[in-house]
């Protein structure tokens, strides 16, 4: 026989938060930035291929670079390894370099 509980039961979920700055980890909103503007074409442009360090990322980008060299030789590819941990602890140098010298970037994650 079904038992009707007299009281409600409480929701066990935590707050969806973001870590950053300012809210001490307790905020209840999530901020998003606009995506970078797109290119009309990548022909003749510099594309950074960034290895996150995750398993297979480097091998994948090797082959991606080979594909550009063969199929789109006007695209200049630059290989870089993400400076921090796979998931975090980045220094900003790499991102500054990409903004200054590149027109596009592809992050290889894979696994």
């Amino acid at each position: 026989m079904a038992t009707l509980l007299r009281s409600a039961v409480l929701n066990p979920e935590g707050y969806r938060t973001v870590r950053p700055a300012g809210d001490g980890g307790n905020g209840k909103s999530h901020s998003f930035s606009s995506l970078a503007p797109r290119l009309d074409s990548i022909e003749g442009k510099t594309v950074y291929l960034i290895d996150t360090g995750f398993g297979g990322s480097g091998k994948f980008l090797d082959q991606l670079q080979a594909w550009f060299a063969e199929r789109m030789p006007s695209v200049k590819t630059v290989r870089r390894r993400k400076t921090g941990n796979i998931f975090r602890d980045d220094t900003k140098d790499l991102w500054v370099e990409v903004k200054e010298r590149g027109q596009a970037a592809i992050l290889g994650v894979v696994g």
Binding site: A2, T3, L4, L5, R6, S7, A8, V9, L10, N11, E13, G14, Y15, R16, T17, K28, S29, H30, S31, F32, S33, S34, L35, P37, R38, L39, D40, S41, I42, V47, A104, I106
Partner: peptide, 30 residues
Amino acid sequence: LTKPLSPEDSISRTIPQSAGPESFGPDHAE
């Protein structure tokens, strides 16, 4: 890398998040 951004792609914004209702029910235990 080349497809133009949609209006949503171009907006910086804050999306409120919530853990949902504080409670569920009252209802049958099952």
